[in-house]
Amino acid sequence: MQASEQLGILAEISGDYPRTARLHEEGVRSARELELFTQVSFRRARQGRIALLTGDTVRAADLHEQARRPAADQAHRPAEQFAEIGLALGARRAGDPDAAEGRLRP
């Protein structure tokens, strides 16, 4: 699971977004099987970043929200903040700087 995360990051850097999405989806499945819900959150947020990079702001918002909820449920602030930053990036990309600021201010 950890190796697939790093491979996904490398694929993202190289611009291979389909491969990145596949690797992060594999990571989500593995993390769920192992009941590592914080990792589910981080991997969903990474999928959200790929959706943003490919211009799918609606999917990005959905994925980032899927990432935020379990992080909040687990009281894992770093994972929750990672998801919130993704939601802010999506709001900014959608032309709503006030919503982006509202996500980042806390």
Rank of each mutant, 00 (worst) to 15 (best):
Q47H: 06
L53Y: 06
G90K: 05
R49Q: 13
P70H: 01
D96W: 12
Q74C: 10
P97C: 02
A83Q: 04
I50R: 01
F37E: 12
L10H: 14
R43E: 12
L87I: 01
Q6L: 13
I13G: 09
Q66E: 08
R19K: 09
R68E: 05
S4N: 15
E80F: 03
G27R: 11
L10W: 13
E84I: 12
G86K: 01
R22Y: 10
E101V: 07
I9T: 15
G8Q: 06
A67H: 01
E26F: 08
L23F: 00
R92N: 09
A75C: 10
S30G: 10
V58P: 00
F42W: 05
A11P: 02
A3Y: 14
A100Y: 01
I85Q: 06
E33R: 11
G48V: 00
D56F: 07
L104V: 01
V58W: 01
P70W: 00
Q2C: 14
A99W: 04
G15Y: 03
A60W: 01
S30A: 14
G15H: 02
A60M: 05
Q6A: 12
T38M: 08
G95A: 00
E33N: 08
P97R: 00
L52Q: 05
L10S: 15
E84A: 14
R77P: 00
H24D: 12
L87C: 02
G95S: 01
A72E: 12
A94D: 14
A72Q: 08
A83W: 03
R44K: 13
E101N: 05
E12K: 14
I85E: 07
V40H: 03
S14A: 11
M1V: 15
E33G: 07
L52N: 07
I85D: 04
R69Q: 04
L52A: 04
A67P: 01
E35Y: 08
F42G: 00
M1T: 15
L52S: 06
E26Y: 08
I85T: 05
I85R: 07
A91F: 06
R29L: 13
T54M: 08
S30C: 10
P97Y: 03
G15D: 02
S4D: 15
E25Y: 11
I85C: 05
E80G: 03
Q66C: 03
G27F: 07
E65Q: 15
T54K: 06
R77Q: 02
Y17H: 12
R92F: 10
G48E: 00
E26N: 10
R69A: 03
G55I: 03
P97W: 02
A94N: 14
T54I: 08
E35G: 08
H64A: 04
L7R: 07
E33K: 11
R103E: 10
R59C: 04
R44E: 13
R49L: 14
L52W: 01
G27K: 09
R103G: 06
Q81D: 09
L7T: 05
A21I: 09
Q66I: 01
P78W: 02
E25N: 13
H64P: 03
